[in-house]
């Protein structure tokens, strides 16, 4: 267990994984994009504007999933105080922030032709904006606070408080009247997206997840080097 968690072993695997993802990424991206933009049918109601879904929905999922994992890892860090966990959460944060913002921006672009407005202060959209603010808070603690142990502690607390926002985002469309439609893909039960549109959606999600993995690994590698550099005198 500890051997696996050993930083130098991890470092070796990170290098391999980055190379592997780089080798398959562009082919998969091309396949996913051609399905999303060419082969998938337009929607019966929204026409071709439904294609915005193929970037909007994966972005929102990644934004939510990243924050959930940051928060849960922060809980673990708060209890067990393992430095490595903090390096991981720090490496996930930029991806999460970017995709949360992308979900907001693409959602706004999708809202204009379909709903007739760029922005609405409904529960789903507002809670998503709050998620972006939590990300910004998490990331800026490291920029503002120089004492790293203190920054670790404060960012953990921000992440744990932000965890409460996650179920609110998820269930906002069921609990309150919102302009945003309810979820099409449910944890249990049938999805209300036709398979010919679900397939490109999942493909795009997979490609973006690979992209996230790539960025995460690069950032994590940077963090490991940063720690080693700081402790160079002790090596």
């Amino acid at each position: 267990m500890f051997k696996l968690l050993n930083l130098s072993n991890l470092f070796f695997w990170i290098e391999k994984l980055i190379k592997f993802i780089n080798s398959i990424f562009f082919i998969l991206l091309l396949v996913a994009l051609s399905f999303a933009l060419i082969f998938s049918p337009p929607d019966y109601l929204q026409g071709d504007s439904v294609r915005i879904m193929y970037v909007h929905v994966p972005s929102a999922w990644i934004g939510l999933a990243s924050f959930s994992s940051i928060a849960i890892l922060s809980l673990a860090h708060f209890i067990f105080k393992i430095k490595n966990i903090k390096l991981i959460t720090k490496s996930i944060a930029p991806i999460g922030l970017m995709f949360t913002c992308l979900a907001l921006v693409t959602g706004s672009i999708w809202g204009q032709p379909t709903w007739g407005t760029w922005w609405a202060w409904d529960a789903r959209i507002t809670s998503m904006l709050i998620l972006a603010l939590f990300y910004i808070g998490f990331i800026t603690t490291y920029k503002l606070i120089n004492d790293e142990n203190k920054a670790d502690k404060i960012s953990s607390i921000i992440a744990i408080i932000g965890l409460i926002n996650i179920p609110i985002i998820k269930y906002s469309v069921d609990w309150w009247n919102t302009l945003h439609q309810p979820a099409s893909i449910k944890l249990t039960g049938e999805s209300s997206i036709h398979p010919s549109m679900l397939m490109p959606l999942l493909l795009m999600f997979f490609v973006l997840i690979l992209y996230c993995a790539l960025i995460f690994l690069m950032k994590y590698k940077t963090e490991i080097i940063r720690i080693k550099k700081k402790n160079l005198k002790r090596l």
Partner: peptide, 22 residues
Amino acid sequence: MSGYGLFVWGSFAITFFACGLL
């Protein structure tokens, strides 16, 4: 894109531009 071109291409462009930048 049957009239939605600006919106569809715009959102894809923004997404991939941001990904590239990051």
